[in-house]
Design a protein around this nucleic acid. Structure first.
Length: 811
RNA sequence: GGGCCCGUCGUCUAGCGGCUAGGACGCCGCCCUGACGCGGCGGAGGUCCGGGGUUCGAAUCCCCGCGGGCCCA
């Protein structure tokens, strides 16, 4: 077949191959979930197109592609889609910034809302395009689905899951305290909250003990919440206040009395050691009120102003209220002291407004009732590596609240509900169609409950938390909406690849939702990767300014080199550190492979008539053993171990030892038979081919390039066969011994200042187990004579059992 | 503030109760080049995060710190 002419691997060759792959349709693997048996569905993480990928994300997707290709090599059909997660706040914010607009203003009319949505969508299109460009350049053979999570198809499915859960009573509408941004006027998920260090003031306020009249001092940063104070606490270990147990404190200004309790939440060293608990200053208050069964008194409104219950502070913004109450306290001599402190304040991540906790009506998904089920389901999935399963278990056990799933935002899947304003009756559409209640007419002509006319029925304007969408990604991939039975079965062939940072969100929510909807585990396999770190070992964040982008490195070293790094950067599940040096090693490895192939293909492959020497069989057996190990690693969804093993096989054993040893034979200067020469060439081709197949999931470009020259066709369609794993009766251990022996002889020559090709005038004595390769060793190292056994006298013991007796009298 | 995970040459790691802690990348020196400046041989580099304990014996088990990460507050 063809010969390899190039001597060096260059990134430009990859661009040529990409074109061919595109033409040959390599990216479209047709998997019929209903008919095919042996397939794997990959629930590729739909990325959020809010910005460009750094090397960490690029590496993550490259690894997913390696797994997909590896599973194909092992004989599975693999569905590996790629689509974008396009719902959510970040794109809205970016759009507001780019055009200097405010979503809440525009969305006051349906037309304005529509216009805003178009702008967001266009921005997403642009960003998504950039992501697609990167993974294609990386050689990822994903099936690109232009329909992302904001497509009518996906949203119809999300809504169908909601309708189903509503009907089964799994979601409900309720008024509960949530974290709220007064400026954006929306509930916030935990993920949407930032903490900023801020210089604030700690105020020491005098309270009176109801029963004894004693005066105590309480330190607080939120004196404006005095009206909402529900308790005063001290730490149970704090002797100073133990005598207050069971008594009550009278709240200054407002005059109501609250219980004084011992509680772990109080920190003795903070302020005076006495703290007031209000509804609500922060999340700890929330937990406290719930735990103690205290009745909250909500004094802050949705717009961040104080209400009637705040008495003299009514109508003031929170900050103004704080100034006012401080003046009042000071005037009455109740302010004992104030000091400056630096504390962490929870703020809305987008506008940095301090978050308030207030009661609002939202939709909630019941999750507390299903903790045991989720644990059981999680237990039935295979985790790679298994250690990370615990993160999910721990999280599930710690859950304390139902999941608020609605958001007052715009670019998201709408909550598919209409409500009758007359009787509060809830009207749901039929599942299967994407509806927009803020714009679409209700699906009924009059209220089915009270008969109120159509215009008394209003559509819900809120959208879902993005996790509500993304937690059904696997159902989208298996097409649950259209073929629920087929989809449910396909879940048993589904694989989830993701980072460990979102186990508590994406993996948890997916497990919960899939189990509730289908009664099954969402996945058979869960593959958990670590986080990408910069060269100094810090997580890469835009805010830290240490994000490294892949493009310049792809241009300089190529995708194979980049993929090589991402495969060997760390063991599966551990954090991986960026290393340009390793990327460079990847390129050198590709060049090495080119030259091995160049050497091998300079000989015509024999058609029969080959006689294999034991050395050839040993090499083949060694390669076959590696192949089995690599296949096993791939089967465990690992690319780290397989890549290191292949590197060792190809470079250290095959190139440095076997190839060098057979040179005397194939160049015809050692007096071997024709059949034996053919045997060497046969083995060279055999090992080359096997290496290319095995390495093709990791470095598809170089492998495909050579495969096309040697075999014709693409290596991407090749499967690992029984034939590949045959060892020809050879002994892999023999090959290892040969490597050791060569090393020992090289070292000996080196120490004596000899050139490696220099003749050795003497007799080399080999142990019995190396008898079969004696002739090859003799020709390779140019030793005058090789014998087997231990001599009576010798000059050097090169390694245990190997002796060298030099000739006498000649020099 | 809480929970969990992790700390072995500069880096990635092997070892998980018992030989002088092994390998790879990088670095330094020497050498080589009829596939490849690709490599070969040698060298430097580790108090196995620190402290205490268990044990005849600990990188390995236990406890306390310190440092890093993730998540939740």
């Amino acid at each position: 077949m063809g010969r390899i002419e190039i001597t060096r691997w260059r990134p430009e060759y990859e661009l040529e191959l990409l074109k061919r792959w595109e033409e040959e349709g390599l990216y479209r693997e047709v998997v019929d979930l209903a008919a095919d048996e042996s397939y794997v569905v990959i629930d590729t993480p739909p990325p959020y197109p809010s910005g460009a990928w750094g090397v960490a994300q690029a590496a993550h997707y490259a690894q997913i592609d390696m797994v997909a290709r590896a599973l194909r090599l092992l004989g599975y059909k693999v569905l590996a889609p790629f689509y974008a997660d396009r719902n959510g706040l970040p794109a809205e914010v970016a759009t507001e910034k780019a055009f200097g607009i405010v979503a809440h203003e525009m969305a006051k009319t349906p037309e304005g809302r529509e216009a805003f949505l178009r702008l967001v969508s266009e921005l997403l299109d642009k960003n998504e395009e950039a992501l697609v460009r990167v993974w294609k350049r990386l050689g990822c053979a994903f099936d690109y689905w232009p329909d992302g999570t904001d497509s009518p198809r996906y949203r119809a499915m999300t809504q169908a899951t909601f309708i189903e859960m509503w009907k089964r009573g799994l979601v409900y509408r309720d008024v509960k305290p949530v974290q709220w941004c007064p400026r954006c006027r929306t509930s916030l998920a935990e993920a949407e909250i930032d903490f900023v260090k801020e210089v604030g003031r700690l105020y020491y306020v005098k309270f009176r003990v109801l029963e004894t009249g004693e005066e105590v001092t309480i330190a607080t940063t939120r004196p404006e919440l005095l009206a909402a104070c529900g308790a005063v606490i001290y730490n149970p270990r704090d002797d100073r206040y133990r005598h207050l147990e069971g008594k009550h404190a009278v709240v200054p200004v407002y005059g109501h009395s609250v219980p004084i309790l011992a509680h772990e939440m109080a920190r003795p060293e903070y302020g005076t050691g006495l703290a007031m608990m209000c509804s609500y200053g922060d999340v700890r208050d929330l937990v406290f009120f719930k735990e103690q069964g205290l009745k909250p008194r909500v004094i802050v409104e949705k717009d961040g102003t104080m209400n009637r219950l705040a008495g003299p502070l009514e109508g003031l913004k929170v900050e103004e209220a704080r100034r006012r109450i401080v003046e009042m306290l000071r005037g009455e001599g109740l302010l004992v002291n104030e000091e400056e402190i630096v504390h962490e304040v929870p703020v809305c991540w987008r506008c940095k407004t301090p978050v308030e906790i207030i009661h609002v009506e939202e939709y909630f998904l019941r999750q507390l009732d299903f903790k045991d089920d989720v644990l059981r389901v999680a237990d039935s999935m295979e985790f790679y590596p298994v250690e990370h399963r615990e993160k999910l278990d721990i999280w599930v056990k710690s859950l304390a609240m139902d999941w608020p799933i609605s958001r007052t935002r715009y670019y998201g899947t709408e909550v598919p509900i209409w409500t009758c304003t007359k009787c509060n009756h809830v009207i749901l559409p039929a599942p299967g169609k994407y509806v927009r209640p803020w714009r679409d007419p209700p699906p009924v002509d009059s209220c089915p409950s009270c008969g109120a006319p159509r215009d008394a029925i209003v559509g819900e304007s809120r959208v879902f938390d993005t996790w509500f969408d993304s937690s059904v990604s696997v159902l989208y991939v298996v097409n649950w909406l259209e073929r629920p039975e087929v989809a449910a079965r396909a879940l048993s062939r589904a694989l989830r690849p993701q980072g460990y940072d979102i186990i508590r969100t994406w993996l948890y929510y997916t497990t919960l939702r899939t189990w509730l909807l289908t009664g099954r585990p969402p996945f058979r396999w869960v593959r958990i990767t670590g986080m990408g770190l910069d060269e100094k070992g810090r997580a890469m964040h835009k805010s830290l300014g240490n994000v490294i982008y892949p493009e310049p490195y792809l241009e300089k070293y190529g995708a194979d080199a980049f993929r090589f790094w991402s495969a060997v950067a760390s063991r599966l599940g551990s954090d991986y550190r960026w290393s340009e040096a390793t990327v460079r090693s990847g390129l050198l490895f590709a060049t090495k492979i080119v030259n091995i192939a160049r050497f091998v293909t300079s000989f015509e492959e024999p058609r029969g008539g080959a006689s294999l020497r034991p050395l050839d069989r040993a090499m083949i057996a060694y390669a076959a053993r590696t192949a089995r190990e690599v296949a096993e690693g791939y089967g465990k969804l690992d690319v780290y171990e397989p890549t290191l093993k292949l590197y060792h096989l190809i470079w250290d054993v095959f190139a440095s030892n076997y190839v060098e040893m057979v040179k005397p034979r194939v160049y015809g200067r050692a007096g071997f038979s024709e059949a034996e020469v053919a045997g060497a060439v046969h083995a060279l081709y055999r090992v080359l081919r096997l290496s290319l197949k095995l390495l093709s999931p990791i470095m598809p470009f170089i492998c495909d390039y050579i495969w096309r020259a040697v075999e014709g066709g693409t290596v991407a369609r090749e499967r690992l066969t029984e034939d590949d794993l045959r060892d020809e009766g050879g002994d892999p251990g023999l090959m290892e011994r040969v490597v050791e022996l060569n090393s020992a002889i090289w070292k000996w020559k080196k120490e004596r200042g000899m050139r490696l090709g220099e003749r050795v005038e003497g007799v080399l004595y080999l142990p019995e187990e190396l008898r079969d390769v004696a002739e090859d060793v003799k020709r390779f190292h140019r030793v005058r004579e090789v014998a087997v056994g231990k001599p009576e006298a010798w000059d050097f013991e090169l390694m245990p059992g190997v002796y060298l007796a030099l000739d006498r009298g000649t020099g």
